[in-house]
Amino acid sequence: MAKEDLASFKLGELLAQYDYARDFFISIGINDIDSNRSLKDFAGDINQELLEDAGLNGEQLITNFLAFIDKMETLKKSSCNIVESITIIGGNDKFGQEENIKLELKVGEVISIVGPTGSGKSRLLADIECLAQRDTPTNRQILLNGEIPDMNRRFSIENKLVAQLSQNMNFVMDLSVNDFIKLHAESRMIDHVEKVVQEIVKCANELAGEKFTRDTPLTQLSGGQSRALMIADTALLSLSPIVLIDEIENAGIDRKKAIELLLKEEKLVLISTHDPVLALMGDKRLVIKNGGIHKIIVLSEQEKQYIDVLEKIDKKMLQIRSHLRNGGVIDESITR
C-alpha cells in the first residue's frame, strides 16, 4: 500500500501487515485498538486526555506513525546495505603538514592503529565514523566503496558505520544474558531470534576463559565474560560493517579467536592499541603522530616471525600475574 494512504487503512489491516506497529501505540499508552477503524478516524476522536498525556495531538500522531513505519521498514531492509571498503584520503596534521595518502581498507582486513596518547587516534576514528568530507579539523575525506557517500547516511542509525568496543564499556542493563540478546535481536527486527541467541552464547563461551549460562544476569559477568559477550554480539548482531576495538585487555578472553570471529562475519576491524601483541594482529599498522597519519607499515614476513616470541612474553606475564593472584611470591624462577 502507498505510504500516504496508510492513515486511511483499517487499523486491523495495518497491524496485520506491520506486526511491529502495535509497539508504537503501546509506547504512547494506547492499548485498545479498534481494528475496524482507520488511523485517521482513530486520531480524529481519540480521548483528548489520553493524547495530552501521550504528548501528541491527532495530527502529530499520524505524522509520527507514518515516519515510524517508514523508519522500521528501512531498518528491515538495511541489512542489504553493504560496505565493502572505505578509503581514507589524507588531510593534514595539527601543524598543517599534508598527510599525502590515499588508503583503501577492505572488510576482512585488520588494521591496527598505534601512536602516543593524544596523538590523534580517536580523531581518525571519528573521521571515519562521521564520514568526513574535508570538513573536519583534519580535512580528511572518507569514501565508501570508492565513492563519495550519500550524506543522509551521516545521521541515520540504520547505517551506523562503526561499532565500538572498549575496555571502559560495561553492561548497565538489569537483564539476563538471554533476555538481553533477545532484546537486541528484536531491535534489529530479525526473524530467527532464538537461533541467534544460541549462537551468540556459544561463541561468547568459546572466547571467554570461564563459561557462563544464558540465565546469568549481565551484571554478574566477569570482565572477560562481558568482553566476550560484547564481541560475539557485535559480530553476529550489529549491522555496522566496521568494528573499532579500543584496547582490549588480555585477561579472560582469547583475542585471536575474537578477531577471527569478527573477520568471519565480514567486518573491517580497526584496533587502537598500545599492546604489542594486538598491534601485530593487524595486516597493516597506521602510525599516528601530531594528529596525522605519519606512516603505514604493512606487516612484514620478518615481523610475523616474531609474533610467536611476543606471545610467549605475553603469556609469561599472564602466568606471573596469576601466580601473584594466587598468593605466590616472585623469585629467580621468573627468569626461566
Binding site: S27, F68, N168, N170, F180, H184, S187, M230
Partner: peptide, 19 residues
C-alpha cells in the same frame, strides 16, 4: 561507557519514540 548492543537498543527505542 555502555556496550555496543545497549547503544543500539537504546537508539532503536529513541527512534521508535521519535521517528
Amino acid at each position: 561507557i555502555v556496550s555496543q548492543a545497549e547503544r543500539e537498543v537504546f537508539a532503536f527505542r529513541a527512534k521508535q519514540s521519535s521517528p
